[in-house]
């Protein structure tokens, strides 16, 4: 066993966990661009997907990505298809059922944005000197911000100077997962399933939820 994973029972290294969290954050942050589709189709992208697929919770997502990028559809056309679903599910467009990607929506009877969960996530970021980038004009309780913050925490843990510090870092992660992501991502997934049962983003949400739960179980 290598030093970095000595003190925890999981199967992924800290950089690996950070990479998965970052990747998932990116998927829910923005529509998939034609360039991203080209990337997945390239050799490096294939390698990347194969490596991600070695972690079982991510297999539904890597399978789905492989399937949709394997065809001959142009990157622009595929990007458009995914963008439409993204807008309908996450951007509130049209009268179709949606899955707003914000903790506030699922944790209050009002179903409103910008409730106390938004401020609480901001407080967690602030405690580490972080804030949401100006290039991402979304509230802090957006799914991608919470996932990106977990990536940040995972990378920090890697720097831990001692085993005791490492345990403290894990505790921070456990608390964030328990109070934030785990409190709502299954409801978010339910909404994705209802709105778009076979869609790419529902598969992504399945993998995301499985991964986060698995990660929490191993912390």
């Amino acid at each position: 066993m290598e030093q970095a994973i000595d003190t925890r029972p999981g199967t992924l290294t800290a950089p690996e966990r950070a990479a998965v969290y970052d990747w998932l954050a990116g998927i829910f942050a923005r529509e998939m661009s034609p360039q991203a589709i080209e990337t997945y189709r390239g050799n490096n992208g294939r390698t990347f997907l194969n490596q991600m697929a070695s972690h079982p919770p991510l297999v539904p997502l890597t399978d789905h990505l492989h399937r949709i990028t394997a065809g001959r559809e142009s990157p622009e056309s595929l990007s458009m298809e995914l963008s439409v679903r993204f807008a309908s599910l996450f951007l509130g467009a049209g009268g179709k059922r949606s899955a707003p990607p914000y903790e506030s929506v699922y944790s209050n009877d009002s179903n409103l944005l910008y409730q106390k969960q938004t401020a609480q996530t901001q407080a967690a970021l602030s405690a580490f000197g972080l804030s949401v980038s100006d290039l991402f004009p979304e509230p802090p309780d957006h799914i991608s911000v919470q996932l990106a913050f977990m990536a940040h925490l995972a990378r920090r843990a890697e720097q831990a100077a001692s085993s005791r510090h490492l345990q403290e870092e894990y505790e921070v992660q456990r608390v964030f997962l328990a109070t934030r992501l785990l409190s709502w991502i299954e409801k978010f997934l339910d909404h994705c399933v209802n709105a778009d049962p076979d869609g790419f983003y529902t598969t992504a949400a399945v993998s995301m939820v499985t991964f986060v739960k698995d990660d929490a179980a191993h912390l």
Binding site: T11, L12, T13, P15, E16, A19, D22, W23, A25, G26, I27, A29, R30, Q35, A36, T39, N43, N44, G45, T47, F48, Q51, M52, S54, H55, Q122, L125, S126, G129, L130, S131, V132, S133, D134, L135, F136, S144, V145, A148, F149, H152
Partner: peptide, 28 residues
């Protein structure tokens, strides 16, 4: 497991797929 995301190429892929959402600064 050992080679999971070990290649530089894969790490480079990730950099293009996952934009940086957080910055080290006070809130907007």
């Amino acid at each position: 497991r050992r080679t999971f995301l070990s290649s530089t190429a894969a790490a480079g892929v990730l950099a293009t797929l996952a934009p940086s959402l957080l910055t080290a600064s006070a809130a907007r």
